Computed example of a mutant assay.
Amino acid sequence: MTSEIEAERGTPLEVFWAFLKLGLTSFGGPIAHLGYFRDELVVRRRWIDEAGYADLVALCQFLPGPASSQVGFALGLRRAGPLGALAAWTGFTLPSALLLVLFAYGAAALEGPLAQGVLHGLKLVAVAVVAQAVLGMARSLTPDRERAAIAVLAVFLVVLGGGALGQLGAIVFGIVAGLVLLRRDEEPKTDQLFFPISPKAGLVAVVLFVVLLAGLPWLAGAGQGVALFDAFYRAGSLVFGGGHVVLPLLEAETVLRGWVSPDAFLAGYGATQAVPGPLFTFAAYLGAVSNGLPGAAIALVGIFLPGLLILVAALPFWNTLRRWPGAQAAMRGANAAVVGILGVALYDPVFTSAVLTPLDFALALAGFVALVSWKVTPWIVVVGLGLAGALIGLI
């Protein structure tokens, strides 16, 4: 039996506008994006409940590809079917992709104190947004001693393990701890999350993923476009954790091949920090530099496609799995571990890269209070701290 939230259906256009708003205002990287998603789609629009959202985040942390884009794709799929999924991906991805293609053609530059000040202000926005997400998820997902302990131990695992490996280890630990410690919890079962994807479609998606990953290298000699698609598809297939983890792979696929100069690569990376949306849209810049507008489109589709195929393959079977009592206990443990992972990300890289002075701390705190206590919409905080950063940059 589904809840009213789950029974509600939307339209692809509604999904597109919701994610276009997020694509225009979601600064700060994948962890911050999850905070924006939670505020807009869980708290404000109530498209999904807190526990279901956390389960979806935990699933996408397991899969290769851009976690925040995968979460958005799944939410669009659930809200308005396959066209809703495409609308969510397009709305969230298009703004930053277009800005970076313009930058590739020399239409933008991140130089001078004003631009650097705005960029710094946007980093402070990320501090406030991620802190709000950690607080909200901790309240609902770590309500007892066992889950609070799992979250804290997950922090240690991420810190000691480092990177995507530490995150995966923390989630695995959360699953095992949930199976051992949380079976006795007498909590109401969360409503099942239904996605309009059949097991057959999931199997087709995983077969297509493998065929493309294995077959594209054999076809790379057919032309520049195929070689470009192969390079970016492989980069998107091999990245766990998304975000900055993909940069070394992209450098190997573009700079070492001579498609993009080292200076152009670094300039594009700097521009990527100043635009909202997923970091994977850096591929659009690299594709445009190497092969113009067709290259931008090929690279963009190539880097996102493998993660979305894997997600489609996983959703039908995950939905069945999470109905089992043992799986529900495991997911409660995994959700607690996700809170710990978010806590680590709040410190590094979000806090450490943004808060450099006491004034930075004061501004980030003001943004946090505005979001949590005054219930200010995130885009107002984005504009306010962006202007504050610009003013500081000019002083």
Rank of each mutant, 00 (worst) to 15 (best):
residue 6 E to W: 01
residue 10 G to T: 08
residue 11 T to P: 08
residue 19 F to N: 02
residue 25 T to V: 11
residue 26 S to G: 04
residue 29 G to L: 04
residue 30 P to T: 01
residue 32 A to L: 06
residue 32 A to V: 05
residue 37 F to S: 05
residue 40 E to Y: 09
residue 44 R to E: 12
residue 48 I to W: 02
residue 48 I to F: 03
residue 53 Y to E: 09
residue 61 Q to Y: 03
residue 63 L to M: 09
residue 66 P to R: 04
residue 66 P to Y: 00
residue 66 P to S: 10
residue 74 A to K: 03
residue 76 G to N: 08
residue 78 R to N: 04
residue 105 Y to N: 14
residue 106 G to C: 06
residue 106 G to Y: 06
residue 107 A to P: 11
residue 111 E to A: 15
residue 116 Q to Y: 06
residue 127 V to T: 02
residue 129 V to D: 04
residue 133 A to G: 15
residue 135 L to T: 01
residue 141 L to V: 00
residue 149 A to E: 04
residue 157 L to Y: 03
residue 158 V to Y: 05
residue 163 G to Y: 03
residue 170 A to T: 03
residue 174 G to K: 02
residue 174 G to L: 00
residue 175 I to T: 04
residue 182 L to E: 06
residue 190 T to L: 07
residue 196 P to M: 05
residue 202 G to T: 04
residue 204 V to L: 13
residue 205 A to S: 14
residue 210 V to M: 09
residue 214 A to N: 09
residue 215 G to R: 06
residue 215 G to F: 05
residue 219 L to S: 14
residue 220 A to E: 15
residue 221 G to N: 10
residue 226 V to F: 12
residue 228 L to N: 06
residue 230 D to Y: 05
residue 230 D to Q: 15
residue 233 Y to G: 12
residue 236 G to P: 06
residue 248 P to L: 01
residue 254 T to A: 14
residue 255 V to R: 13
residue 258 G to Q: 15
residue 258 G to K: 12
residue 273 Q to I: 03
residue 276 P to A: 09
residue 277 G to Y: 14
residue 279 L to V: 02
residue 281 T to S: 06
residue 284 A to L: 00
residue 288 A to C: 02
residue 292 G to K: 03
residue 295 G to E: 07
residue 299 A to R: 14
residue 300 L to F: 12
residue 302 G to A: 13
residue 303 I to K: 11
residue 309 L to R: 06
residue 311 L to R: 13
residue 311 L to E: 02
residue 312 V to A: 15
residue 314 A to F: 02
residue 316 P to R: 00
residue 328 Q to T: 07
residue 329 A to F: 12
residue 329 A to K: 06
residue 332 R to P: 07
residue 333 G to D: 01
residue 335 N to T: 01
residue 343 G to K: 06
residue 343 G to I: 00
residue 344 V to Q: 14
residue 348 D to V: 04
residue 351 F to P: 09
residue 351 F to Y: 15
residue 355 V to M: 04
residue 358 P to T: 05
residue 358 P to N: 00
residue 358 P to L: 03
residue 362 A to V: 01
residue 363 L to R: 11
residue 363 L to W: 07
residue 374 W to A: 15
residue 375 K to M: 02
residue 376 V to S: 12
residue 388 A to N: 07
residue 389 G to F: 10
residue 390 A to V: 05
residue 393 G to Q: 08
